[in-house]
């Protein structure tokens, strides 16, 4: 069971991975502890310094489009953000998030505002997202399948160290 209590950090639609962390920054280092000071700098140079551990990124549709670069997921984690909410995700960012243990939650984000207090509980029965301001609670089904197993293991490294390979559904 994962429980996250934090502040919503509101982003718009079509936030591409270059906006999350620029390709040009990535060529200088892959150290997330350094790169995290440039998180979302193309949109707001002051964003990174305003992030607090426990913050939750909340976006509209198509979060993580563009480049498949994995630092986009690992830099978010390094900044202390453990969950990303979006109306929809681009597929490569979605996989990268799961593979690194960053919780991607596909849900209706239209009513979530910057600074809203969010309580997220993720477990085997699904994920609940409660907005403290509106009192609204949304329940999402558990991820399931191989993606769910990878997320439950804490990421792809832990999953493959345990399983040794991708285990097809229904065949163990």
């Amino acid at each position: 069971m994962t429980e996250i209590i934090g502040r919503a950090r509101r982003l718009g639609d079509d936030i591409n991975t270059d906006y999350i962390i620029s390709s040009a920054r990535k060529k200088t280092t892959l150290d997330e502890q350094i790169l995290k000071q440039y998180l979302l700098e193309s949109l707001d140079p002051a964003f990174a310094s305003s992030v607090r551990a426990g913050d939750v990124l909340v976006a509209g549709k198509n979060l993580g489009c563009g480049s498949a670069m994995e630092v986009a997921a690992t830099v978010i984690l390094a900044a202390g953000i453990r969950a990303v909410l979006a109306t929809s995700f681009a597929r490569s960012f979605y996989r990268n998030a799961i593979n690194n243990g960053l919780l991607p939650i596909e849900c209706d984000t239209t009513e979530i505002l910057e600074g809203d207090g969010l309580m997220i509980t993720a477990g085997p029965d699904g994920t609940s997202i409660t907005n403290e301001r509106t009192g609204r609670c949304e329940i999402r089904p558990p991820l399931g399948g191989i993606a769910g197993a990878i997320l439950d293991a804490g990421g792809l490294v832990a999953y493959l160290r345990r399983e040794g390979r991708f285990v097809p559904l229904g065949r163990t």
Binding site: M69, E70, S92, N99, L156, L160, G164, F166
Partner: peptide, 17 residues
């Protein structure tokens, strides 16, 4: 297209989900 972790998994196991 995939990220680096999926690439690593495919290098190690020859497979991808």
């Amino acid at each position: 297209g995939v990220g680096s972790s999926d690439l690593a998994a495919a290098m190690l196991t020859g497979q991808l989900w």
